[in-house]
Design a protein around this nucleic acid. Structure first.
Lengths: 148, 148
DNA sequence: ATCGATGCAAAGGGTTTGCAGGGTG
DNA sequence: CACCCTGCAAACCCTTTGCATCGAT
């Protein structure tokens, strides 16, 4: 984790931004909760445990900064708030989300069968694809079980 | 269009809801603007042309009602407001959206190469898929042109 | 000493809700 | 006349912004 923090620090410094204490703490929270899909408020609460004086505005401003520098990316599950995850979208990581309509659980999907579709879209619609986001809705195994 | 309106009316009546004048007008706006990705406010403005007395709350409540009855579905492009389209998601229609990061244009994608992925997810994650939503980000032909 | 970064509180934008009045069966 | 539906305004939630202060070069 230390390594990642340093990398982020360097990336920011390269663009004349600082990795301040608060920013580092926010980054730490994100790294400690990978694949948790935290909202800004979630992050705020977690950071407050380390640094009670942090402000919600700082969290928002930091997330914005991280987004601009491709340090994190955001996902929108349509529940009115954005979620944030460490890692940039263009890294080829490309994981998707399956959302259970019953319990709300979010499952990471690591298949990536979309290369072909991306290529096709580029050709058919003259569109240069830089990223994609796939959400799959349905019912998870547990909820299926319980509804039987 | 008349036919669709009647169908919707029947569907609502079957569940003890009425297709009131306002609801019908909202439905008409949605039918007249297919593939336009209207926000609630957009719809409100358009309905106001037909019926200046309509309230924004009614638009929201009607959209909610239509959503519950699978008459429309909503998409979230991450710009802070939901968009609404006539048609339910489980109809096999399944069109996707390509969003230009420069001009914001939204292009309908009608390919559907996701069946295979859906099947795989069902097997690998024990997840019953009912719907999916794909957003493709990048640059449209026009914006590519102009940036050269 | 400068200039970005922070915390607080207020403002903003989209959506929801409480309530009293209106319409329909 | 009962009950749903409506319009209005206020409330709500998440996010952004203004401003004075703080902190690191």
């Amino acid at each position: 984790m230390k390594r990642i923090i340093n990398e982020v620090g360097d990336k920011l410094k390269a663009n004349d931004y600082k990795l301040t204490t608060q920013r580092q703490q926010i980054l730490e929270v994100l790294l400690e909760s990978k694949d948790q899909h935290l909202s800004a408020e979630d992050i705020y609460t977690l950071v407050k445990k380390k640094a009670p004086d942090v402000g919600l505005a700082t969290v928002y401003r930091t997330l914005e900064l991280f987004l601009e520098h491709d340090i994190i990316h955001s996902v929108n599950f349509g529940d009115g708030r954005k979620r944030y995850e460490y890692g940039h979208s263009s890294s080829g990581h490309h994981h998707h989300h399956a959302i259970c309509l019953n319990c709300g659980k979010i499952i990471e999907i690591n298949e990536d069968l979309l290369e072909e579709l991306e290529k096709q879209v580029g050709i058919d619609y003259n569109f240069t694809v830089t990223d994609h986001e796939l959400k799959i809705y349905g019912y998870c195994g547990e909820c299926n079980q319980n509804n039987k």
